[in-house]
C-alpha cells in the first residue's frame, strides 16, 4: 500500500517533505516539485511491483515484502546503485540508502496525516473514486 497522491489537491506547501524529514532523523524521502506556475507534484516512493531498486541491490538490502518495497539497513553497503536504478529519483544514498518505509511503527505515514490539503492516502479506492467524481462534476458543469 504505497501513498497515493491526488495531484489536483496538492497545494505545494511542502508539509510532507518536512514531516518525512522530521520523523526520519533529518533524512527525508519526499520531494515536492513545482510544475511550472500551475501545479505542484510530490514525488513519493511508488513501492513498484517490479522494483528496479531491489533488482539493482546486490546484497538484498532492498527487497519486496508483499506490496511494500522494504529496506534492511544492516545489509546496505551504501553503494548507491539503487539511487541510479530508481526511475523516480526517490531512493538516495549517502553512507547508506534512504527510502520510504511507510513510517514503520506509526499507524499512518507522517506525510499522510500531516498533509493540510488531504491530498495523500493509502486507499487506492479513495484516489480513484475522487478522480471519477471530478470527471463527473466536469461533465455536469459542461466543461
Amino acid at each position: 500500500m504505497p501513498v497515493y497522491v491526488d495531484i489536483s489537491r496538492c497545494i505545494g506547501c511542502r508539509s510532507c517533505e518536512v514531516a518525512c524529514k522530521r520523523v526520519h532523523g533529518g533524512k527525508g524521502h519526499v520531494n515536492v516539485h513545482m510544475a511550472g506556475d500551475h501545479a505542484s507534484v510530490p514525488i513519493f516512493c511508488h513501492h513498484c511491483e517490479e522494483a528496479t531498486c531491489t533488482m539493482a541491490c546486490y546484497t538484498g538490502a532492498l527487497y519486496k515484502d508483499a506490496e511494500r518495497t522494504a529496506f534492511d539497513v544492516e545489509k546496505c553497503t551504501g553503494c548507491g546503485l539503487c539511487q541510479l536504478a530508481c526511475p523516480f529519483g526517490v531512493v538516495w544514498s549517502d553512507k547508506i540508502a534512504h527510502k520510504c518505509d511507510l513510517c514503520a511503527g506509526r499507524e499512518n505515514p507522517a506525510c499522510l496525516v500531516s498533509c493540510p490539503a488531504n491530498a495523500l492516502s493509502t486507499d487506492f479506492e479513495l484516489a480513484s473514486r475522487r478522480a471519477r467524481a471530478r470527471a463527473a462534476m466536469a461533465v455536469a458543469r459542461g466543461r
Binding site: C13, S15, V18, A19, R22, V113, S114, C115, P116, N118
Partner: peptide
C-alpha cells in the same frame, strides 16, 4: 499529530512540522 482537532484534523503545514 492531533487528529481530533476541529480545524486541522491533525494536519500541520511545513512550519508546524
Amino acid at each position: 499529530y492531533m487528529p481530533e482537532h476541529p480545524a486541522s484534523e491533525g494536519s500541520l503545514c511545513s512550519k508546524g512540522n
